[in-house]
Design a protein around this nucleic acid. Structure first.
Lengths: 215, 215, 215, 215
DNA sequence: AATGAATGAGGATTCATTCAT
DNA sequence: TATGAATGAATCCTCATTCAT
């Protein structure tokens, strides 16, 4: 004991602050996993603290309520998602390339963080504030991206009033496809056809040039 | 009075069966409203029966559990939604017309039944079986519609594997737009631009013909 | 309708009173069966009336409460039991013969009315008043029987204070053995050894004359 | 204070574990009393926790359900009863002495623990598993005792098939006499005549040598 | 700061009994 | 008299949160 104290704050020994952050992170991580596995409803404090190997009471030293940690989940993980997508799409040049790479990146992110999807989806119900925040972040970036594509003449000259629902639509698509193509184990497996359909819709729409010509 | 007696059970005094059906309907309606307002979680038996002006115990004369009524909500209302959409779109001729009218009909249905949206959205979590069933009904009809449009040569010759995610995408779009354009009071107000954008996306896609031409 | 009314109260037609007694009996019989099968706890009014093919409410036209029918079960059936035992033992001459035949009669009664045992056993808990009454009836008869045997010099000259616990003991024996030798289906199957042991105990006791002599 | 610190956890301040055991014991004791007074049916969690001066919820920190504590009552108290009887009868030499002392010990145990009788009796209905276990323990010990007396030639050479019902009979006797000689306050008061009658029955039976000789 | 026991509000469900038809 | 729907008191159990150690 004395030796350890003598060691002071130098190496190998964590500061109080570090230790504290570690515990907080452990709780956060545990909450993310538990919500991902069981959903917000069944993400009880007991389950979360057990997963973090901590006592129930410890939870309240770091979060003032269950809702508070719920509200933190999506913003933090959502930022990671955005970072991942940006990084993956950074090499793309054209609008369509960027769209494709972002689209694929969303699904590759889910492969790495399978619990994110449930956190995202159920947040609308259980952490509406967080969901709004996340949604705002995502749409903001998307809007800027579309504005720039519009300025470059890469996409049709849609009004701002049309751009907004477009963004909603594209975001909805990602989320919903992820949900539909997630199996029992929580692994997402998007068929390549879905990607191609998505890109075709964006680029050319669905209609044939000469309607009435049977296939 | 004499007339009533002569009329038998057709009008005036209600039979026990009629009265019973009324109570059941009252409970169903109350549940729909309460779920629409508070969500499934906070749709307690107390709230539902209070709204229906009935005692708690009465609930269990008509439904064997809270989950049972939850599981009935979406199928019943979902059928109404489909009927409404079909009816509204029945006059349309081309694929795009039909799409437009169905699309608008979805939102006009929500105007009439504002609580439907929440029931639909949260069902995935709180009434998964019902949700699967509803989803199956909706996608089934949509798939048939697209198949037929494809056969007629109205839309591009997409594979079945591409058609499925397309359906998901279109359904997701409706739901998400509804959510985004619903105000605090629960009233949906879709801007006309959203409709136009939707139709444009379907018909022509987003891309310009000569990429690079700045606007 | 008119013809039936014209028939009046003559033959084939039951009087109001008869009909009323039939319904009451049906309820009584149903209650006995239900209690015998499920026990008093699970003998709900619903179950009883269902078994009697009557509506719930009808019950309260004949009994003022659930407890009331419970309290009637044992006295009525207990009287039948006593009648059966008396009849079976009527031919016996000596004390031991009478004991044996009564003893056997108790078990033969249970074979005919398998639900009686449970009604009897659980009555101590669920119909204590009835149980006390039944117990009083049974011990009364038994005491008279023992008094008479004592007067005849057939049994040891026990005091009244000793006779009473003896009666309790013998009654306890019957009930307990019945319970232990009833199988899952509710059928009682007393081994002949039990009868012989009972009779030997009564006649000679257990002790050997020359204690210490190993067998 | 210093002394206490020097003493560590051995006295004075209670450890968490000790405190926890005390609460559990308090709940157990409260449950035993409440069941003894009101019976299993009316031994609600509310009553039990009130008697223990604890909140309702506390109950579930120690027992996972109402049934669980019910199932624990008889095994624990039954073991105490057996220990008491064994201890009381340990000095006896002959079969009859041992029987007498065990017999008396059963009733002296009830004097100390008046609520035990009801717990025991109703367990057949409300804690059948526990009752079977207890019954098995009791009969097992009794059977061994009788086997040994038979080997020693102290009692008649009964077959095993006769020994079993004998044990049932003796156990039934104790329970039933206790029940009959318990007053309103729940205090058992067995008359000495009952003991003497029991012993006479065991030793000599009831019959006179020369039947027919009037007293 | 960590612990984990104590708390009690809240909710689903059961069922004997009442009562209008 | 028969019916069966309506009632609401009663009960078990869960779990977020508090708090003493």
């Amino acid at each position: 004991m004395q030796a350890m104290v003598a060691m002071g704050r130098t190496a190998g020994k964590k500061t109080r602050v570090q230790r504290s952050e570690e515990v907080r992170d452990a709780l956060f991580q545990a909450a993310a996993e538990v919500v991902g596995e069981y959903g917000y409803i069944d993400a009880s404090i007991t389950r979360i603290t057990q997963r973090a190997n901590l006592a129930q009471g410890t939870f309240y030293n770091y979060f003032s309520s269950r809702q508070e940690i719920f509200d933190e989940l999506l913003p933090v993980l959502g930022a990671k998602m955005l970072a991942h997508i940006r990084q993956q799409a950074s090499g793309a040049r054209t609008f369509l390339e960027k769209e494709e790479q972002s689209f694929r990146a969303f699904f590759s992110f889910l492969k790495r963080m399978p619990y994110f999807l449930r956190i995202l989806n159920e947040a609308e119900i259980f952490a509406p504030k967080a969901h709004r925040q996340h949604f705002h972040n995502v749409t903001g970036g998307y809007m800027r991206f579309l504005h720039s594509a519009r300025k470059n003449g890469e996409i049709a000259n849609l009004s701002d009033e049309a751009l907004e629902p477009l963004v909603y639509m594209l975001i909805a698509t990602r989320g919903y496809l992820a949900l539909r193509y997630t199996d029992e184990e929580g692994v997402v497996n998007l068929p390549e056809e879905a990607v191609q359909m998505y890109l075709q819709l964006l680029s050319k729409g669905l209609l044939t040039k000469e309607p009435g010509a049977p296939s």
